[in-house]
């Protein structure tokens, strides 16, 4: 893992986001820490309700800061974004840290042309003439692979295909040369061949501009292909954190095992899918102890009492009460089962 040599862009520590609702407090994010370096793609993987999207929106102050209870620190460029005023945050958004979302069609304003929306993004941060901004927009649209960019400038979002819309969103995010790109499920709404195009584009951009990318997804395959490091989230907490290669080779948390064993693989003809029983817990009434214990095949006495913390000793961390040696042994056994052998 390239770590110390590269510049640290973002440092999130003990971030918690609690959202009061009529039924109780939703613990959407419950104490997560990670760092992002320049030139790194960090994957955040988890199912719906795991807190992966909320944690990213919080970084940019895009959740309602008046109603949410937010604690922890998000250090960017030496200052804490959680302490920043609205106008300070405004300077960061779309300029230093950009974000793209799952559904590009819903994310583009239907009544303004794509070009105008990009011009607006430039002029939100820089006092330039419309004509100059327009030239930059056309150039960037061309670079992200939109054919006939000059003509497409005045088109409206509904006149773009899904892949084009996401390219336009990416262009909008990059137009001010940010240092961090947060991509929240950028390919989930897209077809698989278009997904390949978009992932290739994000990869290329990251290499060329050496920015840091946070890629939020539920798709382990995407994580495996394009990230260097990965966080696995469950019920608002990080359950496993490490280099992507290590996590895929030697996953250490039973939830990660479950995720990997529950997805069908393209290369394997037949294999029993081991579903994780039950459903993710309510974020209002989290299980005591380890939030995963009611669904965990390895749970033992004590898992429902204390909440496990991430191991502090290892490079590749997991938050589980099982002894490390046990985890390694159990994974080796699970992996050796004939049905799973071909991976």
């Amino acid at each position: 893992m390239p770590e110390t040599s590269t510049a640290r862009l973002l440092e999130v520590s003990d971030l918690a986001v609690h959202l009061p609702t009529r039924d109780g407090v939703v613990k959407a994010v419950d104490g997560i820490s990670y760092t992002l370096n320049a030139g790194e793609t960090l994957g955040i993987v988890g199912e719906s309700g795991s807190g992966k999207s909320v944690s990213c929106l919080t970084v940019l102050g895009l959740i309602n800061r008046d109603s949410a209870q937010i604690s922890g620190r998000v250090i960017y460029d030496g200052s804490d974004l959680l302490e920043a005023t609205e106008s300070e945050l405004r300077m960061v958004r779309g300029n230093e840290i950009s974000m793209i979302f799952q559904d590009p069609f819903a994310g583009l304003h239907p009544l303004f042309s794509v070009g105008d929306q990009l011009v607006e993004a430039i002029r939100a941060h820089e006092d330039v003439k419309k004509r100059v901004a327009r030239e930059r927009v056309v150039e960037l649209l061309h670079e992200v692979g939109i054919p006939q960019a000059a003509e497409r400038f005045s088109s409206y979002p509904h006149e773009y295909s899904g892949g084009m819309q996401q390219r336009a969103m990416i262009a909008m995010a990059l137009i001010n040369n940010p240092r961090i790109l947060i991509a929240d499920e950028p390919t989930t709404a897209l077809d698989v061949t278009v997904q390949a195009q978009i992932l290739e584009l994000i990869e290329k951009i990251k290499e060329e501009l050496s920015i840091g990318v946070i890629l939020v997804t539920h798709d382990l395959g995407v994580v495996r292909d394009v990230t260097q490091n990965v966080l696995v989230m469950y019920a608002g907490r990080i359950v496993e954190h490490g280099s992507t290669a290590a996590v895929f080779a030697e996953p250490k948390h039973p939830y990660t095992w479950g995720l990997m064993e529950s997805i069908p693989l393209l290369e394997v003809e037949t294999r029993d899918l081991r579903a994780i029983d039950g459903a993710p817990p309510s974020l209002i009434h989290l299980p005591t102890g380890c939030a995963f214990h009611p669904r965990c095949t390895q749970a033992f006495e004590g898992c429902d009492k204390a909440r496990p913390e991430l191991d502090q000793t290892e490079h590749h961390q997991a938050a589980c009460h099982l002894a490390r040696t046990d985890r390694d042994r159990i994974w080796q056994e699970r992996r050796r089962r004939p049905a799973d052998a071909s991976r």
């Binding site: 054919p147 195009q197 382990l220 995407v222």
Partner: peptide, 23 residues
């Protein structure tokens, strides 16, 4: 072939064919 190669997360090295353009 292109469709299969586009599926992310495959273990062995299948040459990825990225189709150009839209349907």
């Amino acid at each position: 072939e292109a469709l299969l190669s586009a599926v992310p997360g495959q273990a062995h090295e299948r040459e990825r064919i990225v189709l150009r353009g839209d349907v």
